[in-house]
């Protein structure tokens, strides 16, 4: 088991290396002079020369890559031309908000979607099942921004339960922090609830037809025990897989949600960086997102081995 964890961690190194190479080439292979691109439309020849010098663009390309990797390993992701700050600092400021939003979204999703899916599977064909499946079609089809504004209108403007927009860091108090993240969390989680409830239902339905579920009934166990102890755990692998994919997709989701709710997170930073053609920041964000994705995948793989003793790498 321990050996597997080590091997799995080691195997992420080549993946991250590939990502770093692609990010590196993204700028180098862009037609034209990268220094001119970085300097922007109003860059003077002198600025361009300075940038070229700073990036070491006069060096041979393999040496440039080594310097680039060396800088990343040192934690130096360069300086943002748009924000005029170290990119690492910029990301450090924003990462908290996005992480909180993602965690809250995940919690809401799991707490709502899995019980719904299990109940729908157990009572397949009944009205409960039809309501859950109907909701899930709806959840898929409503765009995040429409839902976001709808929720703001109902819960913030009409009912005044939540603030309209904005963000308070955890240091401002747990409630103040959570209070502003609940609506964005719900907004973001709806589509995942729809997805994961469906997946759970399908997966549990499959498992309910298995022989060991029949064995569990033959042992005189109650329905609830059969469902939770025998069916759900066996159904878990595909569900966890989808949750993992969901986390990856979440990265796209936060961009819109953070904009709608005016939360200063990585999603907003991405939008700003792209609009400002802030290449160092974009490069760094791609690296960070790729890293998160690789990490999540690794955690999912590790989870499999806990869920199912047959899975050993």
């Amino acid at each position: 088991m321990f050996g597997f964890v080590i091997r799995r961690i080691l195997s992420t190194i080549p993946v991250m290396g590939m990502v770093a190479l692609l990010v590196f080439l993204m700028l180098r292979l862009t037609p034209g002079d990268p220094a001119a691109i970085l300097a922007g439309d109003n860059g003077t020849p002198q600025q361009i020369e300075e940038i070229r010098e700073a990036l070491g663009l006069n060096e041979p390309i393999h040496k440039q890559f080594l310097i680039y990797i060396y800088d990343i390993v040192r934690g130096d992701l360069g300086e943002s031309y748009f924000f005029k700050k170290q990119v690492t600092e910029l990301i450090a400021q924003r990462v908290g908000a996005t992480t909180s939003l993602a965690v809250i979204t995940l919690i809401i999703t799991i707490v709502v979607a899995i019980p719904l899916g299990v109940i729908a599977a157990y009572r397949r064909g009944s009205w409960v099942d039809q309501v859950v499946m109907g909701f899930s079609v709806l959840g898929f089809s409503v765009p995040v921004f429409v839902l976001g504004y709808l929720l703001i209108y109902i819960f913030s403007i009409e009912l005044r339960w939540f603030p309209v927009q904005g963000y308070k860091p955890l240091s401002a108090g747990l409630w103040a922090h959570l209070h502003r993240l609940i609506l964005p969390g719900i907004t973001l989680s709806v589509i995942y609830i729809a997805l994961i409830a469906r997946m759970t239902r399908a997966s549990v339905l499959d498992v309910l037809g298995e022989d060991y579920v029949r064995t569990a009934y033959a042992k005189g166990l109650k329905n609830s025990v059969v469902l939770m102890r025998h069916a759900l755990r066996n159904a878990a692998v595909p569900i966890v897989t989808v949750i993992g994919i969901g986390i990856a997709l979440l990265i796209g989701g936060v961009v819109v949600t953070e904009t709608v709710f005016n939360i200063p997170g990585l999603g907003r930073l991405t939008v700003d960086a792209v609009l400002g053609r802030d290449y160092p920041t974009i490069q760094a964000l791609i690296l960070v997102f790729a890293f998160v994705y690789v990490l999540v995948n690794m955690l999912i793989d590790l989870t499999y081995t806990f869920l199912d003793p047959r899975i050993r790498y």
């Binding site: 022989d211 060991y212 029949r214 064995t215 033959a218 003793p309």
Partner: peptide, 18 residues
Amino acid sequence: CTRMSMIFQEPMTALNPV
């Protein structure tokens, strides 16, 4: 399982794998 028990055809699938 207390007064009547049953065993099945497929021992491969009749036990919970996890």
